[in-house]
């Protein structure tokens, strides 16, 4: 049955080459921890992606309860944390995942750096990787405000002050982020929500796609 469906689609769309591009390739010995235990350093990139997927899924569930509005944001998080079945687990995974994704991505960056894997012809992929790093930090910064508790508000105040100290365009960045020249309040929360849930994930998906397509094009860098 499945084969018949596959054949039916394949006859029309020729999907076998796509499958071959995604999954049908050899993995070299030097990145395989089953052959060399030290090759576990090559797992960091995959684990970063794994946590990213968990972040996307848990974040989707969080938005089912979260209300991005100054009156209700904190209340909705409190309700989610204390009343909703498994709400504490889902929020906990999103909270700890945010830290883990930074840790794993940092380790992945160090692996790529110290194995010199960014060298020709992989310069572009390195640049895309650094951009992903920046997007992740942005996700961490904007997500920190969303529970709208004391530490969220005051950390964001400091962050926005730092952004405002950029010469020439600092004030513009501040108004773009906070929604107002002086107040950090209702506008800021909805903006951070939009940035955290729509803008940055969109950028992240595009960059991840580019990252993976380039890896499949170029293969993994050879052993040292």
């Amino acid at each position: 049955m499945l084969n018949k469906i596959y054949d039916w689609v394949d006859e029309r769309l020729d999907i076998t080459p796509i499958w071959r591009d995604i999954a049908d390739h050899e993995v070299p010995e030097h990145v395989n921890p089953a052959h060399h235990f030290s090759a576990f350093v090559y797992c960091f990139g995959g684990l970063t992606f794994f946590v990213t997927v968990i972040q996307i899924l848990s974040g989707m569930f969080l938005t089912m309860y979260y209300v991005p509005d100054v009156e209700n944001a904190w209340k909705s998080v409190y309700y989610l944390q204390n009343e909703v079945a498994f709400g504490e687990i889902v929020r906990g995974m999103h909270h700890w995942g945010a830290s883990l994704v930074i840790v794993m991505m940092f380790l992945h960056t160090l692996r790529v750096f110290f194995t010199g894997s960014y060298k020709k012809p992989r310069e572009l992929n390195w640049i895309v990787g650094v951009l992903i790093f920046c997007v992740m930090l942005g996700l961490g910064f904007t997500g920190y405000l969303l529970p709208w508790d004391m530490k969220a508000l005051f950390a964001t105040k400091v962050g926005i002050e730092i952004a405002a100290s950029v010469p020439f365009i600092g004030e513009l960045i501040k108004i773009l982020l906070a929604g107002d020249a002086t107040i950090i309040g209702a506008q800021t929360l909805t903006r951070f929500f939009a940035i955290h849930v729509f803008f940055l994930p969109a950028a992240l998906f595009a960059l991840l796609a580019a990252h993976f397509i380039m890896i499949r094009r170029q293969g993994i860098s050879g052993p040292l």
């Binding site: 504490e88 920190y144 004391m150 950390a155 105040k157 400091v158």
Partner: peptide, 20 residues
């Protein structure tokens, strides 16, 4: 469990901020 403090109160001037 992930931490949650009291709701944001911009009038509190003595709060010591700390980023992630």
């Amino acid at each position: 469990p992930s931490p949650l403090e009291g709701p944001a109160d911009p009038t509190n001037a003595s709060y010591i901020p700390l980023p992630d």
